[in-house]
Design a protein around this nucleic acid. Structure first.
Lengths: 69, 69
DNA sequence: GCCCATTTGTACGTATGTATG
DNA sequence: GCATACATACGTACAAATGGG
């Protein structure tokens, strides 16, 4: 499985578990880069997947937030 | 060599030459953008390099200053 | 105390180049 | 050739700290 899919799965799990609650920001791209040792592009790819799935939404200049279920 | 490394080298040289003296602010991010025609992110990257090297220190809201040798 | 300009900090979007399988 | 992944660079937006009027 591609890394960006693996990371998407991890974040999905963290959201469903409540570790990342609704209307709260998920870790920033830079933070996720550090946490998982991945490149910026890969993080952005992952976030794009979650956005397309409707799990999170982006507020430019502020962050990426978990949608309500 | 990456642009941010090139700019870091230029500023290092200006510091060592005394063009940018200790305890005085280096040009602001906006100023460096204009002077060198670079993007904000690239300037910030460069400053981060110099901070990590211990050549300068940042005072948020005021500026970036040259450390004493 | 309040507004405003300046400056740094943080964050996402997009594009390009390189390397690998 | 293509998808994946990393590094770099530019663009834009919002936020916080500082200082002057």
């Amino acid at each position: 499985m591609p890394v960006y899919q693996q990371l998407a799965a991890i974040l999905r799990e963290r959201i469903e578990r409540g570790d990342l609650p609704p209307n709260r920001p998920i870790p920033s791209v830079a933070r996720l880069q550090q946490e998982y040792g991945l490149a910026r592009g890969t993080i952005l790819h992952t976030v794009r997947v979650l956005v397309d799935e409707g799990l999170v939404y982006v507020v430019p200049g502020k962050g990426t937030f978990v949608k309500e279920p």
